[in-house]
């Protein structure tokens, strides 16, 4: 592993981060855990990271969590925004990409995979 390469990436990325200077607007949480992984959560996590990178969405944070007791609906993806959390179920790779494009980018909820929409105090 060449750490020198990472230092170069750091120089480029830090300059870019200074330009946009802000907190993450959206957090996307992928439910992993045994049954989530078996159901395809790996591919989902990867597709989301890929779509976020391709569309250069630098105010989106992608993270993961364990099982949530909704095994039947896995893989689960949560979109955390100010004021609300949207939970999607039975997400496959294609749906994962739609979540990034339709929901995160254009603000449209994907009704066909919606499990729960939760209002949260800002």
């Amino acid at each position: 592993m060449k750490l020198e390469e990472l230092r170069k990436i750091r120089e480029r990325a830090e300059a870019e981060m200074r330009l946009r200077a802000g907190e993450a607007r959206v957090k996307i949480v992928v439910g992993m855990g045994t049954s989530g992984i078996a159901a395809g959560a790996r591919q989902v996590l990867r597709a989301i990271l890929d779509e976020v990178a391709q569309r250069n969405l630098r105010d989106v944070l992608v993270t993961q969590t364990g099982e949530k007791g909704l095994s039947a609906k896995e893989p689960l993806v949560e979109v955390h925004e100010p004021g609300r959390i949207t939970i999607y179920g039975e997400v496959d790779e294609a749906t994962a990409r739609r979540i990034v494009v339709e929901h995160v980018l254009h603000g449209r909820i994907l009704e066909d995979h919606l499990v729960e929409l939760r209002e949260v105090p800002r």
């Binding site: 990436i9 830090e14 981060m17």
Partner: peptide, 15 residues
């Protein structure tokens, strides 16, 4: 080596 740049940064991921 990366400082404030997260491991999930697209360039870091593909590297």
């Amino acid at each position: 080596a990366l400082g404030e740049v997260p491991l999930s940064h697209p360039e870091v991921l593909s590297f």
